[in-house]
Design a protein around this nucleic acid. Structure first.
Length: 743
RNA sequence: GGAUCUGUAGUUCAGUUGGUUAGAACGUUCGAUUCACAUUCGAAAGGUCAGAGGUUCGAAUCCUCUCAGAUCCACCA
């Protein structure tokens, strides 16, 4: 044996040995109790980051249960990550001077698919490098045809049961990425913007968005506001930049008399609150901002300007006309921005598909309250409940190409009411009213072939593929599902499309292990959709939450900050075992941690220490051949020496402790105890003691206890322990499937 | 505005249902060491457990308040 443990010589070949031996497959224990963890699917196109290194927790559980003789399945898979991937791809496109508007949706999809296929596989290699005992023979991908079919079936079922519906309402729309987002995906930013006090006929109102005034369809005051009582229900005449306009004054509780002047302009098409007010008072919606982020023809002379430009221009005009009372430049407020590109999100009215979450969320709350699903640590239940209780209907439409297309067709019986965009035969981007485009001479076939996007009226008849009638014309829904709609079904769609009988055997899964930041986005969706599709079962019994790994200074790792550390580089330097151990050691379940180089170094020294214990044993056996026999026959341990008895007893207790810690998901305590015991109790004291009095009996005890230690450590540090096992013990089967020490 | 979490040695963090002198790692200081390991061994120093009050025979742990930091949710033009 080398004097120093060299992980580079060991890790790759060991992983190959495990994989070739089919030890990652649950069939290795055909009659064992089923135990299943489904890997939270990383972005197929992405690279490993530190969050993924926390999968170590799952590997510990899987390896432990496998050694317990259970049929342990850790099912890997990757996610197509709709918006993320398309975002990255479009950046690439931009470099070559192109944009998504240059391609039909079919072409664009194929381009992205080719791009992803080219970059795929990286993540799998990286997960192998960290020693994760995933059953690769069962690997899944969110766009696997059979999974797509199941996802669409869920949509169909929900639609048939009226849980999914289509509606025309305001959505958070990113004009740069060209798609809407769910409430969850909106980020907020504190901003200082001018608050304009504008003269509205006899009234004065405060607004941050004077450019939306073209979409105003009423002025509102609080019903109890004495100052304005006389105007309620009346029409007032208003001088505006575009001439005189009449406007109704309505009363609504929503208006806060304390804010500004207590008068609000109501723009139902461009503000969420105004939209609600508009619904209550049956106000018309007048859209003045287009999906390109520019003012439309309703804005008169300002048409074609960006929102920002238009705001400045409108204000300038108003000032000229003396319509601005004053400007408060110190006004602070929060604006919704796109979490990807930071563009200010526009509330825009759009036809979208929604999931009615009322019943689903009540059930999702109930299963946790009743303890059918337990969250560890328990304090993460609170945000889970809070978020679900606040949850509003879930917008699942995304105007992306990269994703699962919503499987619906619209009957085109009145082309006048459809808006389409497409690439014509000359490869030009066209968009507009379908009837007008047809009138201009574009052919139906041409439009369908180059189709980019269809906006069907809310009244259009939506049918599924097989419901289409031959004599009728249809255009497809071009929107795709929110990625979370498909990944929210992950536990059952993976198992249902896996090997025969897997679903029946492994569902519900044992544990869902993930970072707390996607508890809401992902876990709650899985619970909702899981109990919807499989009402008798929950998708997993336990939710195990881990924290985030921050950079050495405690700052969140992010590409933009440039402080991202690649776990594989650390695995190269310190060894995969050391990286795994350092992440577990000294960090309580669920709490954030700081990447610590001293800790990595300490973990690496630990692997070397273990290695040298093995070297000592090997050395002794070479020195004294009578000791070799002892190694092979470590069954009936008898100890006459008091110290031997003592350590036997201690090791027994130690082994119980480790088991208990793993069962209770206290991996940090397990790791600390393993480190402490093996180094300072076993090596420093016991080995030193035996050195002075080597007998066959004491050496046998020593060797057998060392085996126990190596076995208990295996889930945490699989490579070095397996290698030691292979060298010293050479059983018929490798350590990975040796039985867990029982007491 | 509502909620959650965190505050323990120079640093990073443990501390299971309240129970002797509050632990570890790294760092620091002193010492050892031919023969498994200098990536080692032995030893030492280092803490008013953020602060104040309360419950208790007993509090880092439970309760209240204060201070500091982080996060989440909601949201007024």
């Amino acid at each position: 044996m080398d004097k120093v443990y060299d992980h580079k010589k060991i890790e790759e070949k060991t992983y190959r040995m495990w994989e070739n031996g089919k030890y990652f497959q649950p069939e290795i224990h055909p009659t064992g109790k089923p135990y299943c963890i489904v890997l939270p699917p990383p972005n197929a196109n992405g690279a490993l980051h530190f969050g993924h290194a926390m999968f170590t927790v799952e590997d510990i559980l899987i390896r432990y249960h496998r050694m317990m003789g259970e049929a342990a399945l850790w099912l890997p898979g990757t996610d197509h990550a709709g918006i993320e991937t398309q975002f990255v791809f479009e950046k690439q496109l931009a470099k070559s001077g192109k944009s998504r508007f240059d391609y039909s949706r079919v072409e664009l999809y194929d381009l992205i698919k080719a791009y992803v296929d080219e970059n795929r596989g990286g993540i799998e290699i990286q997960l192998r490098r960290l020693g994760y005992s995933l059953d690769w023979t069962r690997e899944k991908y969110t766009l696997d045809p059979r999974i797509v079919t199941l996802v669409k079936q869920t949509f169909r079922k929900m639609y048939d049961e009226s849980i999914i519906y289509r509606d025309y309402r305001l959505v958070n729309y990113c004009t740069k990425d060209g798609t809407s987002f769910s409430d969850l995906e909106v980020s907020y930013e504190e901003r200082q913007d001018p608050l304009y006090y504008i003269k509205y006929g006899p009234l004065i109102l405060a607004t941050t968005r004077p450019e939306t005034k073209f979409g105003d369809t009423a002025v509102a005051v609080n019903p109890n506001d004495k100052r304005y009582k006389k105007y309620i229900g009346k029409e007032i005449e208003i001088e505006t930049v575009s001439g005189k306009v009449k406007m109704k004054v309505i009363a609504d509780e929503y208006v806060d008399p304390q804010f500004g002047t207590g008068v609000v302009k109501i723009t139902p098409a461009h503000d969420f609150n105004d939209y609600e007010v508009g619904k209550r008072h049956q106000l018309p919606m007048k859209q003045v901002i287009g999906f390109d982020g520019k003012m439309n023809e309703c804005a008169g002379e300002f048409a074609g300007m960006s929102v920002k430009k238009a705001r400045e221009a409108v204000v300038a005009q108003m000032q000229k006309k003396g319509l601005i009372e004053k400007i408060d430049t110190n006004y602070m407020h929060r604006v919704g921005i796109c979490y990807k590109c930071k563009t200010v999100l526009e509330p825009l009215p759009l036809e979208q598909w929604y999931v009615n979450v009322q019943t689903l969320k009540q059930k999702a709350i109930a299963v946790v309250r009743e303890g059918r699903i337990q969250i560890f640590p328990k304090n993460f239940e609170q945000p889970y409940f809070q978020w679900l209780e606040n949850l509003r209907d879930w917008n699942i439409s995304r105007q992306n190409v990269w994703g699962i297309q919503i499987p619906v067709w619209y009957e085109v019986n009145d082309a006048q009411r459809f808006t389409v965009s497409f690439i014509d035969q000359q490869s030009n981007h066209r968009q507009g009213n379908l009837q007008e485009l047809l009138d201009k001479g574009f052919g139906w076939e041409e439009i369908v072939k180059g189709l980019q996007r269809v906006i069907a009226p809310i009244s259009a008849t939506a049918v599924f593929e097989e419901q289409k009638e031959k004599e009728k014309k249809y255009l497809p829904e071009t929107d795709t599902f929110d990625t979370w709609f498909s990944s929210g079904q992950w536990p059952f769609v993976t198992l249902k499309t896996s090997k025969q009988g897997d679903f029946e055997k492994f569902y519900p899964t044992a544990v869902l292990e993930t970072a707390y930041d996607i508890l809401k986005a992902w876990v709650s969706r899985m619970v909702m959709l899981g109990i919807y599709i499989t009402p008798a079962a929950v998708p997993f019994h336990h939710v195990l939450v881990h924290g985030i790994v921050n950079d050495p200074y405690g700052k969140k790792m992010s590409k933009s900050k440039g402080n991202v550390v690649n776990p594989l580089e650390l695995a190269d330097q310190y060894g995969a075992d050391a990286v795994r151990f350092a992440l577990i050691y000294g960090n309580a379940t669920g709490s954030d941690q700081i990447l610590s180089y001293p800790k990595l170094e300490a973990a690496r020294k630990f692997t070397n220490k273990l290695w040298n214990m093995a070297r000592f044993i090997e050395f002794k056996m070479q020195q004294d051949t009578t000791l070799q026999i002892a190694v092979k026959e470590i069954k009936d341990l008898s100890a006459t020496d008091l110290n031997d008895k003592h350590i036997l007893d201690k090791t027994k207790k130690f082994s119980q402790e480790i088991t208990r810690y793993i069962e209770k998901y206290q991996f940090n305590l397990a790791a600390e105890r393993l480190y402490e015991f093996s180094w300072h109790e076993f090596a420093d004291i016991y080995i030193e003691d035996v050195k002075k009095r080597v007998t066959q009996e004491s050496f046998t005890v020593l060797v057998s206890l060392y085996l126990t230690i190596i076995t208990l450590l295996h889930p945490f540090m699989p490579f070095v322990t397996e290698e030691i096992y292979q060298r010293l013990y050479m059983g018929e089967k490798p350590l990975i499937i040796q039985p867990w020490p029982r007491t």
